[in-house]
Write a protein that binds this DNA or RNA. Structure first.
Length: 431
RNA sequence: UGGCGGGUAGCAAUCCGGGUGAAUGCGCCGCACUGUUAAUGCGGAUAGAGGCAGGUUCGAGUCCUGCCCCGCCAGCCA
């Protein structure tokens, strides 16, 4: 007989089934043993009464340690008192392995210890809630693009040169020549958009920045759509529809997980289109009026400035038309004011900062040539990119959304390190 | 990289006005208990010469110096 998974338990109420998994925790009440059992799809309480099982099985139950692997046979039934609503009345217990003294106890632990034991920490209910939410966010992202005419066209991880500069890249030895782990699929995405119209790429991204904050990883996942004939306004409209879809989907599909995480969902419910949109210039005035009178037009936002902006709204907010000087070389100039570019960032509420960056890309060959020179980029590495402006250049736009920051925001976590199974952080790569 | 705060038993904390190798809870073992949810009660064992290296002192976990590691914040960014 095939074994049954906890996530499907409702279909088997009253029937004898077998479940395979691990013992998360146990409460010994003498002739009654409560097993907190998990199988990867969920947690369920199993109850072993001495009179219901063989003496051998009962003995084995009493000897089970935390995280021992075990196969249970029994009958599930509805139990209002149990988390999840179901409970297994056990008829037989088969021990697969008795686990050695398990380091992670149900009591408090520090971050250092938990991260050193990340390979085991993943088994905890809270980590399940986060990573199951992450998986659903990823599916929502793919669904939205797939259903809105975007073609998945992935971009390379290994690149011959930097996208925007060389200081933050991980270098590898590519058959004797340097190659770099990608920090963005952006430029390749533009080639793909000129080929397929509407595309998106989705994969890991690497940045060797010495950033040590709750919002940074050296390896993180990013989804980047790019589409031909798209404008700044198109991008912001797509962005708000897209982000709202993700949030509303999670509210519906991961309500149980958000409850485990004690997430205040009323704040997420408000995330619907349209989002507020303010210009960089308006944002500067806002910052000056709220405690930073010395902030100058032309300065880039720091974390405290972003917080001031996002605190004004109960939805994510777009800040558009940044000074040309502080943005990437490929950004399109605003034809009505060449001091600013047609770019915009989306700032998440509740202090989570920038979760999207993007905008319209320049289609102007001469302008891009001058930008490459101005930014001291190696011209030959960008010839293929310039080709895109020689052969059927069109206005186009795109953006990148950081998965981990989005997960951290939706789950309301203190740090992005819990949003990915094995976080890669500054000088930390174990386990 | 800078600022601040930390590194004491497997884990988490107390001790931080220097003075007999101090110490609580969890975990672990045993006993009791048919409704636990971080169970409870009783009993027991294990465990560090207090991050590492120096220094001051009659005497240092406790003061000083250097180094290592961790956390938070900042810069940079998604």
């Amino acid at each position: 007989m095939d074994h049954v998974y906890i996530q499907n338990i409702a279909q088997y109420v009253g029937k004898e089934i077998t479940m395979k998994g691990w013992l998360a925790d146990k409460t010994d009440k003498g002739k009654l043993q409560f097993l907190k059992f998990r199988d990867g799809t969920g947690f369920i309480q199993a109850v072993v009464f001495q009179k219901d099982v063989s003496p051998e099985a009962f003995d084995a139950t009493k000897k089970l340690t935390q995280e021992s692997s075990v196969i249970l046979t029994g009958v599930p039934r509805a139990e209002p008192r149990a988390p999840g609503g179901y409970e297994l009345s056990v008829k037989d217990v088969q021990v697969v392995q008795i686990a050695a003294d398990y380091p992670i106890t149900p009591k408090d632990h520090g971050v250092e210890f938990l991260m050193a034991n990340r390979h085991l920490w993943l088994r905890s209910p809270r980590q399940h809630a986060i990573l199951r939410t992450r998986a659903r966010i990823v599916k929502a992202i793919r669904d939205w693009f797939d259903d809105n005419g975007f073609l998945l066209v992935d971009t390379p991880m290994l690149t011959p040169s930097a996208c925007e500069g060389t200081t933050t890249l991980f270098e590898t030895d590519y058959f004797g020549v340097p190659a770099y782990l990608t920090q963005s699929g952006q430029l390749y995405n533009e080639a793909d958009a000129m080929a397929f119209g509407k595309v998106y790429c989705f994969g890991p991204t690497f940045r060797a920045e010495k950033s040590k904050t709750r919002r940074h990883l050296t390896e993180f996942w990013m989804v980047e759509p790019e589409w031909a004939y798209g404008t700044l306004d198109d991008y912001m409209r797509v962005g708000e529809e897209f982000v709202s879809y993700i949030v509303q989907t999670i509210l519906k599909e991961r309500a149980e997980e958000l409850k485990v995480l004690e997430r205040d969902t009323s704040k997420l419910e408000k995330v619907t289109p349209p989002f507020p949109k303010i210009s960089y210039t308006e944002a500067v005035e806002l910052i000056q009026k709220n405690g930073f009178p010395d902030f100058k037009w032309g300065d880039d936002f720091g974390a405290p400035h972003e917080t001031i902006i996002s605190e004004q709204y109960d939805k994510p907010v777009f800040v558009h038309r940044y000074p040309t000087e502080i943005k990437a070389f490929y950004m399109a100039l605003d034809p009505t004011n060449p001091k600013v570019v047609l770019g915009a960032d989306l700032l998440a509420p509740e202090g989570y900062g920038e979760i999207i960056g993007g905008g319209e890309r320049s289609a102007d060959l001469a302008y891009l040539e001058s930008q490459i020179e101005k930014h001291k980029l190696p011209r030959e590495a960008y010839e293929w990119y310039l080709d895109l402006r020689r052969y059927g250049a069109v206005p186009h736009c795109g953006f990148g959304l950081g998965i981990e920051r989005t997960v951290a925001w939706i789950c309301k976590l203190d740090h992005v390190r819990e949003t990915i199974p094995f976080a890669r952080m500054l000088e930390k790569i174990y386990p």
